[in-house]
Amino acid sequence: MTQAPAPKLTDHQPVPVSAPSGALKNLMLLLVPPIILFSMFLILYAMVRANLQEHRQFLMPSGAELWANAFGRPEVLAELAQRSLITIGIALTGLSISIPVGILLGVIMFRATILERAMFPNLVALQSIPTLAIIPLIQTALGFGTLPKVLIVAKFTMFAIPITLLLGLKSVDRGIINLFRLQGASWRTTLVKACFPSAAPALFAGLRIAASLAVISAIVSELFFLAGRGGLGQMIINSKIDFKYEQMYAALITATFLSVCVYIAFTWLGHRLFSDWHESGGKEN
């Protein structure tokens, strides 16, 4: 028998477990990386702007110009706040339609495969109708009020909801369903007590997508349905007409900020609801 080669041993030291970090440290860890990345984008912006011909630099206002002509001026701030309220109102009203309708559609498709087969392709078709193409039709049918804007937001934000919900509902653990079946539980009981909780994290992923689209689609809708004292979308158009590009940027930045806020709100809510038990939850074991 030949001698086996001596095993190569490596020392593995204990890895010190980092003490549970404080709230401040957690917040820093949450905020600092995106801020760094964002700063890099700002630098890129500044570099592009520096290379622009002088007479085209108005397209990319500098920070100082933004401050002097937009964010530093109380009347512009007041206008931004007022218009934000209008835009966010449209966005949230649209969501308040698309969320229940989307959930209902998801549940209907879950009820029977035949319903899913019937509805799914139609949903996809509906989603792929280019909104811009039907805007003239909507204008003629519904005028220029709030209703068409809200409907456009609803159309934009609805799609992700039934799709993610259906996926979640279908991936509920068969064993859990069997438990319910063995007790003779009704379909409704099973839906409410087993399928919905199990699908909730997936649904929330869909809601986050919907939320992030809501503000954007509200602005898009405003661009086409200018009426009365509109929201941020109208401000963008107005400032273009008036050649106030700083205000246009201010409106854009505010809209982005709103969008992020809505997204964060839904993310936070989802985290609150599921982090205790769901694998995606942030809490360590």
């Binding site: 653990d173 064993g175 859990i176 069997n178 438990l179 063995l182 087993a194 909780p197 199990s198 909730a200 599921f274 038990w277 769901h278």
Partner: peptide, 11 residues
């Protein structure tokens, strides 16, 4: 009936 897997509801 206890199943071969624990089949607990994670939530």
């Amino acid at each position: 009936y206890t199943f071969q897997d624990a089949t607990l509801m994670p939530w």
